[in-house]
Design a binder for these strands. Structure first.
Lengths: 116, 116
DNA sequence: CGTATACTTAAGCATATGCTTAACCAAAGC
DNA sequence: GCTTTGGTTAAGCATATGCTTAAGTATACG
């Protein structure tokens, strides 16, 4: 089991490559094989396998071999983990902004009321 | 200007390191100096500077030097870009699931109505 | 002016990443 | 059974990343 921080490391690292994001985009429309994932990419099959391994290690993708073809599907909980982290940071920032707004509003009122 | 894909590369890459996420977490509560960002991290100041450069290059953070201290603040639009990409992938996946659900529902109805 | 503070630059180094080519293996198709 | 198809393993290599220490610069303080 990966701890939270290591899981985020692996997830964001996996997301940081255009080939891997392309694979995830394809997979977001439904499961597919390795060679289907490779088709639009300008690189060798072993390279695609390595990207796939990164995606699988991060928990963003799950795969399963049936006969000689490996079927790959997206794991939406992997996406959610990353999405939640980003959302929390953004929310904290916005809350701070709200408090700042309240503070400025209060100052304005006090200036008006007490003629500072 | 970075194109969309390069911007996502830089953003997710920046997010893939625990020290940089720690810095972003701190910054989500408000602007601060470099040495303040460095305080909780077990590394040299130059190392922190390098992480900061990565964050700034990705557009997740903006900095500005006043006197001898550099003030750093989070750039929420950087977070949004990454968040939106994740959200789109997850949404596509969920829509596919909905369509699959509809299909299965249709099949069930047809079986019931026409006694297939 | 002299010293402390807050970075900043440069160099060097170990490990990680992203790719390649060259075999290799095992299920399908004929 | 022999070949094609779909994937896998291994090795090697160039570049990128994450850190370090040592030395520098530019404010601010007393």
């Amino acid at each position: 089991m990966l701890n939270q921080s290591a899981a985020l490391d692996a997830t964001f690292q996996a997301l940081a490559d255009p080939a891997r994001r392309s694979m995830l985009s394809r997979l977001s429309f439904g499961p597919t094989s390795v060679s289907e994932l490779a088709r639009p990419l300008k690189m060798s099959l072993p390279a695609v396998m390595q990207h796939l391994a990164v995606l699988e290690a991060s928990g963003l993708v799950r795969t399963r071999k049936l006969g000689r073809v490996r079927s790959c599907r997206i794991e939406p909980r992997g996406l959610s983990l990353a999405e939640r982290w980003l959302n929390q940071r953004r929310t904290e920032w916005e809350q701070r902004f709200d408090r700042l707004g309240d503070y400025l509003e209060t100052m304005k009122k006090e200036t008006r009321d007490h003629g500072q």
